[in-house]
Amino acid sequence: MRATFLGTGGAVPTTERGPSAFFVERDGERLLFDCGEGTQRQMMRFGTGFSLSHIFVTHLHGDHILGIPGLIQTLDFNDRTDALAIHGPPGSKPHLRHLVETAGYRPGYPINIREIRPGSVAVDTEEYIIRSFETSHRGVTSIGYALIESDRKGRFNRDRAESLGVPVGPKFGRLHDGESVKLADGSIVHPEQVVGDSRPGRRVVYTGDTRPTETTVEAANNADLLVHDATFAADRASRAKQTGHSTAQEAAQIATRADARQLALTHVSSRYAGDVTPLESDATAAFDGQRAFVPDDGYTLDIPFPDADDNHLSDNIP
């Protein structure tokens, strides 16, 4: 899984930071969270490709949605035929439809727009789900999204299987798939004898604009990456509260409570255009020594599985 930060700035873009857009590629599938103006150019600039399957909108403020009309048309100009799904908070469907059909434009491919209630599942596959959660932003209905992968099979213990008399070959795979196998001597070997406990998949959580919320803590529980609003440094806490945003310190406190592994601080106010040190310093001090960072536009992050460091164990099936 790879994340690309296409737009990390606040409501007022700068020469270095565009409006909100966060891109995830997972096993060849491409997902976009928010689509501020200029997102299509950022996608070209940073080489993400245009073969999107879903766009997830957190709320209807312009710096999160005004890139949709241009992106929709660019996809059309590239001869897209596959359907595109756009997900948004309750009440957003007519507004998103107007954006898609700006100035009477009608795309040449299907676009399915869905309103997603907080706490509901927007996408449900065998490999992962994307669940929405309630956020809190001034003057608008807003939601965040959690990409949660399904548990993976436990590790296969080849040495144990061979010691039980399982011949190298197809029976290894059948055991790993949860099927008991019969050996030549008539004995039965069951999966639980040679396969370990299931292993967690990855979890990536994106808040959009929000105050600190309990629902974010719940959604980000053990997240491999939490992407959280961090518009201001701690000395602007009153301004953050007034405008419905979070400080970097508040974002780090949420990440700490959620036991997140990494915290990306986004929606950076233009006040920090020349120096994001105050944000990173505030967050690092409050995040129990875990990694907190302000990504630049175009920054790409590979997200490993939670057990990636367990190199002494491995699946070993022919």
Rank of each mutant, 00 (worst) to 15 (best):
L99N: 07
P13L: 11
V194A: 09
H95V: 15
V140C: 10
R117M: 15
S270Y: 10
R97M: 14
G62V: 11
A219T: 05
G9C: 10
R152L: 12
P90S: 12
E162W: 06
A234N: 05
Y272G: 13
P89V: 03
G144C: 09
Q290M: 02
T247W: 12
F287W: 05
Q249M: 15
A264L: 12
G70S: 04
L225A: 07
G108Q: 13
R158W: 08
H176M: 03
Y206W: 02
I65H: 15
A255V: 02
A255I: 01
R117E: 15
F77H: 04
V100C: 14
Y145L: 01
S142C: 13
R114I: 07
R291G: 10
G165T: 06
S314P: 04
R261Q: 13
E25D: 10
R199N: 04
R155E: 13
A103N: 03
S142G: 13
F172H: 03
P19N: 14
E192N: 13
T135C: 06
E127A: 13
F50S: 01
D288K: 03
A237C: 14
G62H: 12
V166W: 02
G178F: 15
I143D: 07
A240G: 10
H61P: 02
A230V: 05
H176I: 04
F293R: 07
P295N: 13
G28H: 03
V12G: 12
G274N: 12
I303H: 02
D229L: 09
P167V: 14
L225Q: 08
E218Q: 00
P94C: 12
K241N: 15
I188R: 04
L313H: 10
S238P: 02
P69M: 11
T102W: 04
D224E: 14
R271I: 12
E280W: 02
L313I: 03
M43P: 03
F293T: 09
Q73Y: 04
H98W: 08
D185G: 00
I111N: 08
D309F: 11
R203Y: 11
F287G: 05
L164K: 05
I111R: 10
S142E: 08
T207R: 00
I130W: 06
M44P: 02
S187E: 08
A273Y: 14
Y105M: 13
H64C: 11
E280P: 05
L75N: 13
F22D: 03
S20H: 03
S180I: 12
E179W: 12
A248H: 08
H54D: 06
I317F: 00
